[in-house]
């Protein structure tokens, strides 16, 4: 059954110029409605190969969840072509459901009032998992996610981290070929996060499950994904290796200087700009591609320098800059003339 579709291994998930346009009606007065057309996803194209683990990031409202919903088939694209394992998700949602797993960090698929094991028995029936395979998978997931002590505990009594592990197991009992994770580490403490990440890494390397991970936590991406896609205002603004983000984001390094006393912002011309002053300490931003040496030499020569340090750009700052640049570049709400 699972070999039904003939998909080239190179493109397990195919997204070709996919768009999603929402019509938002807003009351502007008595009996007056304004119709706004919001492009939540704007002609996005990408492919994900079988066994890849891809990070999908972007600010709130960028279109991440909309993309995930289209990939699961609960939203129909307004345009473009979408295939997951050769299946058109919105047309054959139920058939696809047997081959994908979904975890929503802020929502649970588990039965709130009942012991965890009851939800798993339900998955057993819902996905029609053969008995032997169900038991095998359950045993494996219970061991890997350390759930044995929790199986008889009602879900409402689980901590957030425990519940998340329970949800991940529920999504994997039917051996999905691809797992979509929407914010799997949101709200978790450091230990729980590490545990979830470790599990996902193993799942991907040992079982070859394709993983598409949506997150705000860039550590998730740094620790798990070799490839990252950045979406903003419904458009894919970056798709590539994590390392390449720095160049794409025109990232800057920061030189932190401690002067002898409080002074007006340091003047070094085009080489760097002061981004922050706090007493005798000043922060200077300069392009990551430039060497820090001439800048340090110049400041040491012209100012009473006591101490200094250079900070590498962290990915978080790089992405924040990426979002900001685009924010100022364009406001993308298209006014539609229609009324209806």
């Amino acid at each position: 059954m699972s070999e039904g579709a003939t998909v080239p291994e190179s493109a397990f998930i195919e997204v070709d110029r996919v768009e999603k346009v929402f019509d938002v009606r807003r009351r502007t007065g008595f009996l007056q409605r304004e119709l706004r057309r919001v492009r939540a996803v704007d002609a996005i194209s990408f492919t994900v190969a079988r066994g890849e683990m891809v990070g999908y990031i972007g600010p709130n409202g960028a279109g991440k969840s909309t993309t995930i919903k289209m990939l699961t088939g609960i939203l129909t694209p307004s345009g473009g072509r979408l295939r997951v394992a050769g299946i058109d998700p919105s047309r054959e949602r139920t058939r696809l459901a047997h081959r994908i797993g979904v975890v929503f960090g802020q929502r649970t698929t588990l039965w709130w009032d009942l012991p965890l094991i009851d939800s798993y028995r339900l998955m057993h029936r819902m996905y029609r998992i053969p008995d032997g395979r169900y038991r095998e998978n359950l045993d494996r997931l219970v061991e890997l996610l350390d759930l044995s002590a929790l199986l008889e505990v009602p879900v409402r009594q689980l901590s957030l981290g425990q519940r998340m592990r329970g949800d991940i197991a529920a999504a994997l009992l039917h051996d999905p070929e691809v797992l979509y994770l929407d914010e799997p580490t949101i709200g978790l403490d450091v230990v729980s996060k590490a545990r979830v990440r470790e599990f996902l890494r193993e799942l991907n390397t040992e079982r070859g499950t394709t993983v598409l991970l949506t997150t705000h936590d860039l550590q998730d991406i740094e620790q798990l994904c070799s490839r990252v896609m950045v979406i903003d205002h419904g458009r894919l603004v970056y798709d590539g290796a994590l390392a390449g983000l720095h160049e794409a984001g025109e990232s800057e390094r920061t030189l932190v200087v401690d002067l002898e006393r409080e002074l007006p912002p340091v003047e070094v011309g085009e080489a760097a700009r002061v981004v922050k002053v706090d007493g005798p300490r000043q922060w200077l931003a300069f392009p990551a591609s430039e060497s820090a040496a001439p800048l340090v030499a110049r400041i040491a020569a012209e100012y009473p320098l006591v101490d200094l340090s250079v900070r590498e750009p962290d990915i978080e700052a790089v992405i924040a800059r990426m979002y900001q640049d685009r924010e100022t570049a364009r406001e993308t709400v298209v006014q539609a003339p229609g009324n209806s």
Partner: peptide
């Protein structure tokens, strides 16, 4: 029928959910 077993499980769950609140 697979789906009959699914909905029987759902019904059993509905029964037990309320049974927990004694």
């Amino acid at each position: 029928m697979g789906s009959a077993r699914l909905y029987a499980t759902v019904a059993a769950g509905g029964f037990r959910r309320y049974a927990t609140y004694r």
